[in-house]
Amino acid sequence: MIFDKLKDEVEKLLSRYPVKRSALLPLLYIAQREEGYVSEPAMKEIAMLLDLTPSQVYETVTFYSMYNLKPIGKYHIQVCRSLMCALVGSDNVVEWIHKKLEITPGQTSSDKNFTLSVVECLGSCGTGPMMQVNDDYYERLTEEKVGHILDELKQKGSSSMKSGPFMFPQLAK
């Protein structure tokens, strides 16, 4: 059971809403954080916590694109393909990643480190082309930068090139 050891976190979440069901999306995030994806047992457990039926949970989870219903690679690379990024070369990013990791959208690398997806606008259209890897944004990508980010992730588990609090254009130094 995932949530047995997370009683405080669950309590705190439930206290934010007058109606339990509102905690559904946040609890699904916790399940995904703990297991890497949202498993069926996790959905059943959430249903119990919120007095819902498992199918109510399933119905909801399948509407949203950020929940993975199957295990994926350690790093989930999501490249924005919408118009504003496409105008400045987002299709190349997919190519660069393909060249480096030998995966196409929808695939996971053989070492289970990387899963590649193409997604729609991530709210970063002025700093495209861009991608999100797990929780972090990487913007104004070039082939060199993409290579560097993927190497760092693989070797160190994090990359120094991730975006901080957003400001663009940046202030002149």
């Binding site: 905690a23 999306l25 909801t60 729609e120």
Partner: peptide, 27 residues
């Protein structure tokens, strides 16, 4: 004030879809 994260659905920016989503349903 509480922060509530959506989960990847453009339509949840439409105000009534946002409310549905905040109630833990399909947006």
């Amino acid at each position: 004030i509480y922060v509530h994260r959506g989960a990847g659905a453009y339509i949840c920016g439409e105000e009534t879809a946002l409310l549905e989503s905040l109630e833990g349903k399909r947006g």
